[in-house]
């Protein structure tokens, strides 16, 4: 089973991403946002049922902004945010918006080109899970969360900027 980082620990990945035209089972499965957005009628009902059963995750791909999902996000057990390239930083804004504005509390996972030196930023933006690129060293990675002990800005884990924490 593939391994991921979950809450700063190495964990087994219980979820599978399914192709847009593949049928769904009762396992824990992730669909692309576009499939969710396009679904209508009975298809949509089936997805909602699966979601409410806690076995449907959704993936925001490059260019899908968090406001497309907005408060609908709250029902999912897992949201993936894709980083198509490590230098593409849109996912950081998506994560913060999901956590801070749209009240998402489930597993928020960074997927794609996820590398060691991004983990600290990702954690601060509200990701609690990272599916790292296959060549990354997970044992090393779990140490990547301690780089800065007291950063300047507010983040998802502490809404106070340093200027409200200084004294």
């Amino acid at each position: 089973m593939t391994q991921i980082i979950l809450d700063k620990q190495i964990a087994n990945d219980e979820w599978t991403l399914v192709a847009d035209d593949a049928p769904l089972s009762s396992n824990k499965e992730v669909i692309n946002f576009s499939r969710w957005a396009a679904a209508e009628g009975a298809d949509k009902d089936a997805l909602v049922t699966k979601r409410d059963a806690g076995t449907l995750g959704i993936q925001l791909n490059a260019g899908d902004t968090a406001d497309l999902l907005a408060n609908e996000s709250q029902g999912f057990a897992l949201i993936n945010v894709e980083f198509p390239k490590f230098a593409d930083g849109r996912g950081y804004s998506a994560a913060r918006l999901l956590r801070e504005r749209f009240g998402y509390t489930g597993q928020l996972r960074a997927v794609g080109d996820v590398l060691f030196d991004q983990l600290f930023f990702m954690m601060r933006c509200g990701f609690n899970a990272m599916a790292m690129r296959a060549d990354q060293d997970l044992d090393l990675a779990v140490k990547g969360f301690e780089t800065f002990s007291a950063p300047y800005q507010a983040d998802v884990n502490d809404t106070r900027p340093l200027f409200r924490r200084r004294s």
């Binding site: 930083g89 930023f121 950063p151 300047y152 800005q153």
Partner: peptide
Amino acid sequence: RQWSTFHPEFAFL
């Protein structure tokens, strides 16, 4: 300067 230093959201603009 302080706000922008290692801003977690804006490191990959």
